[in-house]
Each structure stands twice: as structure tokens, then as C-alpha cells.
Simulated assay, not measured.
Amino acid sequence: MNTSLDHLHPNQSGTIIAIEAGAELTRRMSALGLRLGRRVEVLRIAPWQGPLQIRVGHTELMIRRTDAAKINIQLSA
């Protein structure tokens, strides 16, 4: 099943299959390790539409929900 990163719940994970963002945002995400084929896990979600805390490899990041919505994920089984 495919969805966007902002729809995952804590402890859910998946693989990045597409990033639907402009060139600048895609470059910034890539520099943070958010690239096609990478596994992403949601650790926590801030209330009131706040950011998501995610893990990519051994790195933990905070990402805005609007940016997370641009990352398409294939859920892990």
C-alpha cells in the first residue's frame, strides 16, 4: 500500500518511492538523507499539525507536515 509520509503513525515505516517537490526542496531533502529507496520510520508526531520526528537510517530528523506530504511511501509489511 502506498501513502504519503504525513499519513503514517508512530512506529510505522516504509520506503520512499517518490518525492513530489520542487528542485530546491528535493535537494534539501536529499541532503538530509531522504532519497528514493530509503527506509523511513515515524517516531513521534507533534500535536496541532506540528512536525513529525522521523528516522532515516541512523539519523533522526524533524520534518514539517507540509514537506512530509510530498514524500510518497510504500508501507512495510
Score class of each variant (00 low, 15 high):
residue 1 M to S: 11
residue 2 N to G: 12
residue 2 N to W: 11
residue 2 N to E: 12
residue 3 T to R: 02
residue 5 L to H: 04
residue 6 D to K: 13
residue 7 H to E: 11
residue 7 H to T: 03
residue 8 L to A: 06
residue 11 N to Q: 10
residue 11 N to R: 09
residue 12 Q to D: 04
residue 12 Q to I: 01
residue 12 Q to K: 05
residue 13 S to H: 13
residue 14 G to L: 03
residue 16 I to T: 14
residue 18 A to E: 15
residue 19 I to N: 15
residue 21 A to D: 00
residue 24 E to T: 08
residue 24 E to P: 06
residue 25 L to N: 07
residue 26 T to R: 02
residue 26 T to H: 11
residue 28 R to Y: 04
residue 28 R to W: 07
residue 28 R to I: 04
residue 31 A to T: 13
residue 31 A to Q: 12
residue 32 L to Q: 09
residue 32 L to C: 08
residue 34 L to M: 09
residue 36 L to K: 15
residue 37 G to Y: 11
residue 38 R to Q: 09
residue 38 R to V: 06
residue 39 R to A: 14
residue 40 V to F: 02
residue 40 V to E: 00
residue 41 E to W: 03
residue 41 E to D: 02
residue 43 L to K: 08
residue 43 L to R: 13
residue 44 R to A: 07
residue 44 R to Q: 10
residue 46 A to G: 06
residue 47 P to K: 12
residue 49 Q to M: 14
residue 51 P to F: 02
residue 54 I to A: 07
residue 55 R to T: 08
residue 56 V to C: 13
residue 58 H to C: 15
residue 59 T to D: 08
residue 59 T to C: 12
residue 61 L to R: 05
residue 61 L to T: 03
residue 63 I to W: 00
residue 63 I to Y: 00
residue 63 I to V: 06
residue 64 R to N: 05
residue 65 R to A: 00
residue 66 T to L: 13
residue 66 T to Q: 06
residue 67 D to V: 07
residue 67 D to Y: 05
residue 67 D to T: 10
residue 68 A to R: 00
residue 68 A to P: 00
residue 69 A to H: 02
residue 70 K to H: 11
residue 70 K to N: 06
residue 71 I to P: 01
residue 72 N to V: 02
residue 74 Q to C: 10
residue 74 Q to G: 09
residue 74 Q to W: 10
residue 76 S to K: 06
